[in-house]
Design a protein around this nucleic acid. Sequence first.
DNA 1: CTCCAACCTGGAGCGCGCTCCAGGTCAAGC
DNA 2: GCTTGACCTGGAGCGCGCTCCAGGTTGGAG
Lengths: 131, 131
Amino acid sequence: MSGYAPSEAARRSGFSLDTLRYYEKIGLLADVDRTPGGQRVFTDDDLGWLVLFRCLRDTGMPIAQMRRYAQLAREGEHTVDERRELLGHHAARVEEQMRLLQRQYDHLREKIRFYERLPAADPGLEAGHGT
Amino acid sequence: MSGYAPSEAARRSGFSLDTLRYYEKIGLLADVDRTPGGQRVFTDDDLGWLVLFRCLRDTGMPIAQMRRYAQLAREGEHTVDERRELLGHHAARVEEQMRLLQRQYDHLREKIRFYERLPAADPGLEAGHGT
DNA sequence: CTCCAACCTGGAGCGCGCTCCAGGTCAAGC
DNA sequence: GCTTGACCTGGAGCGCGCTCCAGGTTGGAG
């Protein structure tokens, strides 16, 4: 149920092996278990963290902030408020990001609609900036 | 109506002066007008391009692809199909990007809801991976 | 005519998030 | 016991998209 080889953890998390090692090196993942010989063994808990990191990364959180979150979580219960605030602020930024993306997507779609009306079009419609 | 100093173009486009020069250097903006003394003068058409570049950039298009688009547009009418296709493919990627962002945002919100139920909570609810 | 802020060029440097490499170790299957 | 593929470490390198710098020029205001 628990105890995954590095390659298995990579497969399950979708991060590369190098990225997993990198995340440990910079302190995102801490205290990863080892075999007596020194090879990593990832737990379900580690995989849970990786799911979270993927979520935060995909929503554009810089690694420094993920590190801060992870450190707070390791410090224990008394950092709960700060963690909630950190995630809350991030969520607000993501909302803004989504609005911007939607707006620019609409622009893009409009531009494409312009092209789609062209085939039957009069030359002379060229509306600047590359049509 | 037309003919903006660099600083004015920067203000209007939201790109820095350095970025404007960089975009010209790499061939995104081509044939920017100059004063006899060599200083740039941006036209409304240039600003139109910059609006487009901002749209593409904000939606995650790599610069190399913007360059390709701009070059096609400069080559004339016969590249219209390819340009439409390029934008269409990009739009599809953007849609995927929006879906992912939404999904991860939902995850994030769920995590935050967990924190918001904590204040009145029993200790012992700590659900791993940093709560 | 003088001043000075805005502009020019070529090229180096940076911040981010990995990714790759060399040279060595570990461990499961035969 | 041997082989071999997965794994280890430390550190260098990379791709992207700018950003900054030095050292010099321009051009409008007074």
